[in-house]
Design a protein around this nucleic acid. Structure first.
Lengths: 199, 199
DNA sequence: ACGGATGTTGAACTTAGAGTACAAACTCCG
DNA sequence: CGGAGTTTGTACTCTAAGTTCAACATCCGT
C-alpha cells in the first residue's frame, strides 16, 4: 500500500458511513468511488482492494484510540484513577466515530485477518490496561490480581461492547455518563458493599 | 427458508469451521457444498444464500445459549449466585462451540443484519441478565442499580469478549476457571476491598 | 401397486461486480 | 524542457454467486 496523500484520506472518511450502513459486501467499489469522489482507478492505485480501504480506516481509528488512551495512562494520579481515565478516553473516541465503530464490528473478521490490525488493536486496548492493572496492584489503588491479562480482556470487553452499543443505537447518553457507569461497575462490582451477604 | 431436515442440519455444522477459519467471503458456496457433502442445488433449495446458512447456524448457537442461560436464571438461590451461574452457562456454550463463535464475531455484521438474529441475541443475553439484576436488587444479593439495562450490556460485554478470546485463541483455560475470574470481577470489582483508598 | 406431491441432485446457464490493463493526461521538480 | 511519478477514463477479464430445469428418488394416501 502506497503512502496516501492526506487529501485522499480525508475523502475516504465519507465512505466509512456507507460501509457501516450496508456492510462491506453490499458496498460496491464503484459506490465507494462515487461516495468519496475518488475514481475507482485511483483507489486501485493505492489499495489492493475493498478490504484494504476498510482496514486503512480502521487502523486510523485504532491509532486515535491508542493515542488518547496513552495520554490517560501517562496522566498523574494513582492507577485506579487513571484506569477511569482510560475508560473515558476509549469511550470518547468511539462515540466520536460511530460509523467507523459500526464498520469495525460489522466486518471485524475481514479486518482482523489483516495482521497489522490485530497488533493495533492490542496496542490500543490491552497493553495499556494490563499495564495499569499491574501498577494499581503496586500502588494499592487496585486490588492485586493473579491474572492481569485476563482481567485486561474483561475490561476491554466491558468498555468496547458498551461503546459499540452506543455507536450502533445512536447517541443516547453522554459519554461522560457512560464512562461513569462503566467505571463504577469495574471498580466496585455488583455485590453489595457491606460484606458477608453471599453465602 | 424451508423447514430443514435434521440430517441436513447436522452436516452443515462441519462447514461452520470452514466459515470461521476463512471468513464468509473466502468460503465459496461450492466449498460449503463439498465440505458438508450437501450439493449446491440442495443448499439453494433450502437457503436463499450463503448468509442464510451462516445465520441458521448462528441462530442455533444463540438458541443453545439462551436455553442454558434460562436454566441458570431459573435455578434456586439468590440472584447473585444465579448470576454466576448465568456467566458460567454462557461461557460453557461458547467454549463448546468455538468455530461458531469465531464465525459469529467474524461476520457479525452480515449476520446481524438479519433481524431474527438480533432478537435471538437479545433473548439469549440481555433479557435474562437484566432480569437477574432487578431481582438481585430486591433480594439484597446485588447492589441496587439505577440503570439495569446498561449494566446488563456491560456484563454481556465482559462475558462475551472473554468467551470469544477463548474461542479464537484456543482452549487455554478451563471454562470453570474463566467463569470464576469473570464472576470475581463482576461481583467484587477492581478496587481494593477495604474502602477509603480512592480519593 | 399406482400416482401425485414433495424432496434431491447434476449440469448448464446468466450475471454482478471485483480486480486488471493501459494509455492519455496532468503535475511537479530538476 | 523532459522525465518520474500520479491521476483517471475506459474497456476488459474472470470468479463465483445465484438461477433454471429436467431427471430421478422418496414418501404417503387411497
Amino acid at each position: 500500500m502506497r503512502a496516501l496523500p492526506v487529501q485522499l484520506a480525508t475523502k475516504l472518511y465519507g465512505a466509512a458511513e456507507l460501509m457501516a450502513d450496508q456492510g462491506l459486501d453490499n458496498t460496491k467499489i464503484d459506490d465507494i468511488a462515487e461516495a468519496s469522489g475518488v475514481p475507482k482507478a485511483t483507489l486501485y492505485y493505492y489499495f489492493a482492494g475493498k478490504e484494504e480501504i476498510l482496514a486503512f480506516l480502521l487502523k486510523d481509528l485504532l491509532t486515535a484510540i491508542a493515542g488518547d488512551v496513552a495520554v490517560a495512562v501517562a496522566a498523574d494520579g494513582q492507577a485506579g484513577e487513571r484506569l477511569v481515565g482510560v475508560v473515558r478516553a476509549q469511550l470518547d473516541v468511539m462515540v466520536r466515530h460511530p460509523a467507523l465503530c459500526r464498520a469495525l464490528v460489522g466486518d471485524l473478521g475481514r479486518a482482523t485477518r489483516l495482521p497489522e490490525l490485530a497488533a493495533a488493536l492490542s496496542a490500543a486496548f490491552y497493553e495499556p490496561v494490563e499495564e495499569l492493572l499491574r501498577e494499581g496492584a503496586k500502588d494499592g489503588s487496585l486490588r492485586a490480581t493473579e491474572d492481569p491479562m485476563s482481567e485486561a480482556v474483561m475490561i476491554f470487553g466491558t468498555v468496547t461492547v458498551v461503546g459499540l452499543m452506543e455507536a450502533i443505537f445512536g447517541p443516547q447518553n453522554d459519554p461522560e455518563n457512560i464512562a461513569r457507569g462503566v467505571s463504577r461497575l469495574l471498580l466496585d462490582g455488583l455485590a453489595p458493599r457491606n460484606p458477608g451477604n453471599a453465602s
